[in-house]
Design a binder for these strands. Structure first.
Lengths: 296, 296
DNA sequence: TCAAAATATAACATTGTATTATATTATTGA
DNA sequence: TCAATAATATAATACAATGTTATATTTTGA
């Protein structure tokens, strides 16, 4: 049976041109090297070297095999290195499924920070609708999912993060005078809001009911970016997470905390059964930390 | 230290999906396989498999390493196979330096026969002048040299082959009446011949001297192919080896043995110091045999 | 829940890989 | 040419890798 150690020995002899030199480069004794080469010679039944003025040069047969032999040794080195990098959390691949809003705003910054010290890590980021994300997580297609209004699934483990809710309005609007904004303050405002079937919309709508203020729906949008664009064009005001709102500051918008406190609940997901890789745990931690400043 | 056996074990577990299945495919006991995997797991400090409904599936980290691992195993197999083929004389590479005449006429047939049963053997055939061939052989650039008029060199070993000499003339020429041709028969013929400084020319010229017949030089050529072309165009007759002449039969030429017997001496060369590969010895033998029918 | 299957652990044999000590073979320079 | 020296091979031996069988433990599925 051909052994890896024999090939290492062969390679060392070819590069040094002698048994004793090869022994030195591999850091073993000369007799050990002698035997490795003798064993290999028995294995390959042809002669390995020609002796020419004191130098061992590879035989034609060995020259034929040499490229493959070197490749094997190189690949073994690669495997070792990569495994070390995986343990240093510097290599690996991460598949993240998230809401489209995240893919374009908050996530890229977190990813950039994460990859800065992990040059060998690669990532896949797939933005899609919440139902699709859930499906993918349950099917273990992705390592991490980021969504909102998640109500649980047996094969998906979640970490929930409550983000502060704010009211956004165009710069210079009268609401800017207030410290906090309640439904009562919005009595004459047109509201731009997310889908009516979303958990978050229902919480907001309840708050208005309790305050006995009519919720004046103006436009229903699917993404907070659209809402912010509309608000900055003076088409109304909106109630959304501070995380989303903060991306639109400096583009003609202002925001103030909304009262009563309604959390915008994000969910960080991972498949329950699939053992998470170290980098995926690290990423989840970093992502969680990145939201701390917006957390309720 | 990462061991090859561990990678074989890993690959078997990945393909079978279980430890015991992998043990079966490698033909070892289940505890042996258990230990190989445990050792590898200790080596790679991350987890190797996820268990999912009784099946072991490779972890993300292993998936990252798997292509290289498979490649290593494949290459080891290749090396084994190729070494076996070398021993069956079915693989290798042969470098042959020869006179241009050989490269275009006799050699291709021999090469074709040789390669028929040795599909993995590759060859380099380099045609050049005799001095260059000698130089290459002495410098161990080539395995085999084929030349003529070789007078010896300390680092080149030769096998000499004497080829019968014939006189070629155009079809229908009066010489066709004779069984053998002597210098006397050529008294009125114009002669097309090789270089005056060649060993062979000097032998022929001596034969004419002894017969006291003038050698009527018409054209001096460097290659027998040129001589044959000229002869078939009626520009004279020529004296050359039967080997060369036989290639030009059926193209308007005839030949008869030339007397006195003058051998056209070919030399099969190989470097003295360089240990010959098995295929080069086999090729030399086949080449020698292929000339038997023309041998004096 | 319980029997069967899969896997892990223990005790031990064999072989690969190294060691040191020593013999043999090449190389080299007076 | 021959002795000194370097290179390599062989022998005796230690220890780790790799296998075995026997047995315990865990998982799986009816």
């Amino acid at each position: 049976m051909l052994r890896l150690r024999q090939l290492e020995a062969l390679s060392a002899v070819i590069t040094t041109g002698s048994i004793s030199g090869a022994a030195k480069t591999l850091g073993i004794s000369q007799p050990a090297m002698s035997r490795l080469i003798a064993d290999l010679s028995k294995n390959f039944e042809f002669n390995l070297f020609n002796k020419r003025d004191g130098q061992l040069t590879p035989s034609q047969e060995i020259q034929l095999l040499y490229p493959d032999i070197e490749r094997v040794l190189e690949l073994m080195g690669n495997i070792q290195n990569t495994s070390a990098e995986i343990n240093d959390r510097k290599a690996g691949h991460l598949k993240i499924a998230c809401l489209p809003g995240f893919a374009t705003s908050h996530l890229p910054k977190v990813v950039a920070t994460f990859l800065k010290n992990r040059p060998e890590v690669t990532m896949t980021i797939e933005p899609d609708r919440p139902e699709r994300i859930l499906e993918w997580m349950a099917g273990e297609q992705y390592d991490i999912g980021i969504t909102d209004g998640f109500s649980g699934h047996p094969s998906v483990e979640r970490t929930e993060i409550d983000i502060r809710t704010v009211c956004v309005f165009p710069q210079g609007h009268a609401l800017g005078q207030l410290k906090e904004i309640t439904p009562t303050d919005l009595i004459n405002e047109k509201l731009i809001h997310s889908r009516r079937d979303s958990v978050f919309f229902q919480s907001v709508s309840q708050a208005f009911q309790r305050a006995q203020i009519e919720f004046k729906s103006s436009i229903e949008v699917r993404q907070f970016t659209a809402a912010c664009e509309l608000v900055s064009n003076g088409l109304g005001v909106s109630i959304l997470s501070e995380l989303d709102a903060s991306k639109y500051v400096n583009t003609g918008l202002e925001f103030r905390p909304f009262r009563p406190k309604i959390p915008h609940r994000l969910a960080l997901l991972r498949p329950t059964l699939k053992r998470p890789s170290m980098i995926s745990l690290e990423f989840m931690q970093l992502f969680h930390e990145s939201l701390r400043q917006y957390q309720q």
